[in-house]
Every structure is written in structure tokens, then in C-alpha cells.
Write a protein that binds this DNA or RNA. Structure first.
Lengths: 337, 337
DNA sequence: TTGAAAGCGGTACCAT
DNA sequence: ATGGTACCGCTTTCAA
């Protein structure tokens, strides 16, 4: 078992002090160390395949150069894509990313945050779960920089990068209305998260703007914990009501995926039997027989901005919060009629 | 800016030594420290919201409890799913996962590995890229534990968890043969990676076993770097040859996704105009009008085993290598005729 | 130009 | 039962 080589090992071999080795290896040309010594040290370092121990550097500097990324589920394509973007952006700033999946569960989220705080991450990017307000407030109290993405808590001042959920939901609902649908159902998560409420509000106000009364029986909420079955039940309810809906707005891509499967199972055809719009894209939609009208989020921008804000905050902690509400775009396809 | 609280802070407040605080906080009941003092220390620690600095612990113990995960692309659902499983399994062993995407690029892979070695990760789980043999050998030289997944280098002794690519490819090709196809094209990556070669070998030997001569013009290889266009070109070539193929075997799900899009664009119908089989599943296939016969990998098992082997290796470095070749299963659907 | 030494936050051996 | 202290590997001040 060959132990890792440290500055001390190099110093011993080169017959110089540890400090000298450190200077040579970190300060490049203008280290103040003489040419001969420098060369010797460099040579030995290379021979020994020296690698600086970043744990020690971190302890010394108080900076870990690690960012904690907490999402609902890293295997969800939406978050996986964000993760990739964040990875790339973080790397540009010399940060490494550790990730954790909260499963939309506040306890798991709390455990993850604590774990990563102990690991001295320099900051967090978090898609916060319902009920995680305390955790977020605690981060603030501890002066640990963080940026919320995808969702945020309006009652808590913080950095965040989200999209204008209200507007996007309004627009996509309008699209259904414009194509002649006035009986529109909505499938949402049963969640108090602001972004979800905003999507519902967008839906509601779009209807009202056209003078249509919002029917709460048409706003269906499903539990994270029982997703597949719940979607199935709720979609059927919407379609078998005394006055069935002619269109459904799915407020996330995961909901849509299971919703579309339900629609298929019921032998209904989009858009002839039923119109459909979705918040978010999904690779799977590319293969659906009917191209799906949906809201497309600017993932790249979200990731870039989140990192930029975070790194900024890490470097200059006095700064005020950055609150970004990006525009999402409506991608019009063939699923509305 | 409130600094983080350390043992020293608690010691000062409690008027005891740092050592005492450490004992109380780490050794629980049988710390050897008296009840009164223990309680006082615990109380103050709680008040001050003390969090052990794991960087310091790591420096001291030489263990970071971090595992480096290197995949081709974390946003690829295959790897995102694996990542999630690895995250969960790692957590059971108290490990945190940092990840990096290599983009199938040996240089990036090397940079990532070096970065994470400097960060003192306790071990790696790697889906190695083409040309990364040197890096793997270096890890061995440095006695850094690692497990290869998805692919491995047969010429390098190491831990790995893969599936039996040859057998799976053989089986899935056989399925095409059994359903009456004898003119079968293959779309693969242009790569020397063993798993890809094994898939091609499975295809070839399945043909030969039925007395069909392998036509190298029907084995098409596409570049990672030019995926979409290349798939389009090669699929067209297969279909517009003097003797066109009646079936195509896509050796990964990403290839299949673009291949199916090409087939759609050419206005061909699966399976009537062309039969299709795929190595790996994809959520997108659920929405394809024709359910796709494919190879399903035991992702959960791969992730679990990879972590188990890795953690074992970390704890008992003398152990011999574990080489796992798991069984993949053939999921028969309707895309062959 | 070079080096001694303090210190980052813990842990654990050895005293007392 | 409690505490002094060395050490993990590195950086940086201060002195020589």
C-alpha cells in the first residue's frame, strides 16, 4: 500500500523545507525560489506523481470548492439535464458538484443539507421540497450561500432562479381556449409549493379572462407518493364527469407521461378525442403519435444563472439577493383542437 | 458573518478542554467523561448549533467518505438512473457521491479523475471511455479503489460490473431471425470499447449460427461527435442498399431514438416495413406507436453491486478483484416481424 | 532565497 | 475523569 505523497516527502528528497516546496509548486515562476532548487523540486514532484491534497487545502483555506446540488430526483430527466448543465458551469468556476435526491421529502432534504453542510460545501443549489422552509431559513442563519431553482418560497427572501410559472401556465391554457376548448381539466401535484400554485393560478385566470368560471372539480391533484395510480384515477374522473372535459393541462412532464398512457389506455385519441398541453418537455413526447404542445423551460439559462449567482454570493457575501424569473416559451404543436 | 463553530468554541464556553468536548460529542455514553460535564457540553453544542467539520475529520482520518462517479453524461437517462441508484446505495454506507460527465472523451475523463483524486475521494465508479486505459492503470498504481461499470477493459485486471453483452446481443438478434428476418443491419458506435465489440460479436455470431454470412456493409458505425446526422445517414444506407435490410438492431437506446426518428422521417412503419430491436430501454419507447423489443439491463443490481464491491475494496484493500457479468433480459414486444 | 512555525478543526495517545 | 499535545497536509507570515 503506497501512501500518498505529500509536500513533506518531496521536501525530504529535495533536502529543502516544506515551505520551499509549497512555494515552488503553487507560485510558478515568481515563487521567489531559485531556479536550481525550483527545478529540482519540480522534477521530484513529477517523479513522485505528487498531487496536492485538496482536503488539506480546504481545511486551511476554509473553502471546499464543492457545491451541493439538491433536486427531487436525479434520475428525473428534468433534473438530470439541469444537473449536467450545473456540472459544466460549476467546472468553469473550478467547482465540483455533489448531488442528492430529496424525493420531494422534507426529511430527506434536511438530512441531505445537514450532511453537505458538514462536508463544508461552499454553497447549495436547491430545488426545495414542500415543507423545507425551516431548512432554507437555517441556511440563511448560518450564512451559507444558496440559490433555489425551479421553485422558491415567496415568504423567504433568497436567491432564486425560476421561470414565470403563472405566465407560462396562462399562455398554455390560452392556447387550449383559442383552439376551441372551454372545458379544460388540470392535473397538478398535491403540493403547496409556490410554482405549482402559480401554474394553477395561470390556468384559472386564463379561464376567467375568457369569462369561464373555474370549476374546482376540474382541478385534480395527485400525490407524489402514488403518482401513477392517482393520475389514472383523476384523468378518468375528468373524462367521465357529467360534463366531461375536452382538454387536459398537465402541470409537469411526469404527470403528462402517465396521463398520456391513461389516455391511450382509454382508447382516446389526441387531439380528436381530447386536447392536451403540458408544462415541460420530455424526450418521450418526441415519439408520441401526436406532437404535444408544451412549455419549454430555458434549462441552460437556469443552470448558468444559478451558478453565477451562487459563485458571486460565495465570493462577496454582502451582496443582495438575486431573484430571477425567466421566461418560458410556448411550443405550439398539434395536440390542441 | 458568523464563523462556523468549532470544538474550541464549545470548549471555551464550557470551560473544559477541546479533548473533552471531542470525547463527549463523538463517544456518546461511554465517553469516560462525567455526567455533569457531558450534559453541559452537549447543551452548549446544541445551542451553538455545532456541526463537525468533516474536512478536518477527513484530513485526520485519511477518509473522505466521498465516491467519485464518472459517466459519459449524467443527463443520459441510462446514467441518470444508475446515478440515482448509486446515490441511494452509497448513502447506506455513509458515502456521498460526486459526479462528472466525460462525454466519452478520454481527456475529459482524465481531468475528472485527477480532479477527484486530488479531492481525496475514497474510490471511483467509472463507466470508462475509449482510450482511458492509462487512467485506469494509474488508479491501480496509486492503489485507489475503483469499479468499472457498463464497460471494462478485458486486458486490464480490475473490478467491474457489466452485463453479458455478447449473450444479450446474440439473443436479441436471434429474435429478429426467428421472426423471419435474415437481412439485418446493425447500428453501433464507432468505438473500440469492449462492450460495443461484444454486442457486434453477438450479432455476428447469431447470424452465423443460422448459416447467414455476415455482411460488413451492414454493420454501420456512427461517431459520438456526430450522432444525429450519422445515424440518419447510416440508417438510410442500410435501407437503400441494393439489397435493403428488413430489420435493424440498434446497439444503444440513444442510437435507437435517433434511428426511429429517421425511420419515421422515411415514412416507414415498424414492424411492417422494418423490424427493430434495441439494446437498452428508454422511457421514450413507451410512447412509440409500436412497442419495441429490447434488452433490459438490471440497473438496480449493477448499482448495488458496484457500491458493494467498491466499499469492500475500500475497507479491505487486499481483496482480489470482483468481476461481475450480469444477465440482461430480452423484453419481447411487437417490433419484429 | 529559504525556512521555522503557527494554525485550519478534529482525533487519540498518553499523562495526570 | 479530564487535559496536553502531536499530527493529518497545506499555506503563509515572519525572520533570517
Amino acid at each position: 500500500m503506497n501512501k500518498k505523497v505529500s509536500l513533506k516527502d518531496i521536501a525530504k528528497r529535495a533536502q529543502v523545507s516544506i515551505a520551499t516546496v509549497s512555494y515552488v509548486l503553487t507560485k510558478g515562476e515568481n515563487s521567489g525560489i531559485g531556479y536550481e532548487v525550483s527545478e529540482k523540486v519540480k522534477k521530484i514532484a513529477a517523479e513522485l506523481n505528487y498531487r496536492p491534497n485538496q482536503i488539506a487545502q480546504s481545511l486551511r483555506s476554509g473553502k471546499s470548492y464543492i457545491i451541493g446540488l439538491i433536486v427531487a430526483d436525479i434520475s428525473n430527466p428534468f433534473f438530470a439535464n439541469i444537473a449536467r448543465i450545473i456540472e459544466d458551469e460549476a467546472k468553469k468556476h473550478n467547482y465540483t458538484v455533489v448531488f442528492g435526491s430529496s424525493d420531494e421529502n422534507a426529511t430527506k432534504s434536511s438530512d441531505l443539507i445537514n450532511l453537505l453542510v458538514n462536508r463544508q460545501v461552499d454553497g447549495f443549489i436547491i430545488a426545495p421540497t414542500e415543507g423545507s422552509q425551516e431548512q432554507i431559513i437555517n441556511l440563511k442563519k448560518q450564512n451559507i450561500p444558496f440559490v433555489l431553482i425551479d421553485r422558491h418560497f415567496p415568504e423567504i427572501e433568497s436567491n432564486y432562479v425560476t421561470i414565470n410559472n403563472y405566465k407560462a401556465a396562462f399562455d398554455v391554457t390560452n392556447r387550449l381556449l383559442d383552439t376551441g376548448n372551454s372545458d379544460i381539466g388540470l392535473i397538478a401535484y398535491s403540493s403547496d409549493l409556490h410554482h405549482m400554485k402559480e401554474r394553477i393560478r395561470g390556468y384559472s385566470e386564463a379561464l376567467e379572462a375568457k369569462g369561464i368560471k373555474v370549476d374546482n372539480n376540474r382541478i385534480k391533484k395527485v400525490a407524489f407518493s402514488n403518482l401513477i395510480e392517482d393520475v389514472y384515477i383523476k384523468v378518468r374522473e375528468l373524462l367521465s364527469a357529467p360534463k366531461p372535459v375536452t382538454a387536459i393541462f398537465f402541470t409537469t412532464n411526469t404527470l403528462a407521461i402517465h396521463g398520456l398512457k391513461t389516455i391511450d389506455k382509454l382508447n382516446l385519441k389526441v387531439p380528436n378525442d381530447i386536447s392536451v398541453v403540458v408544462f415541460d418537455a420530455a424526450e418521450a413526447f418526441d415519439f408520441y403519435y401526436c406532437p404535444i404542445t408544451h412549455i419549454k423551460q430555458p434549462l441552460l439559462k437556469i443552470g448558468k444563472q444559478a451558478i453565477d449567482i451562487l459563485v458571486n454570493q460565495i465570493n462577496t457575501p454582502e451582496k443582495k439577493y438575486s431573484k430571477l424569473n425567466l421566461k418560458a416559451i410556448l411550443v405550439e404543436k398539434d395536440s390542441c383542437k
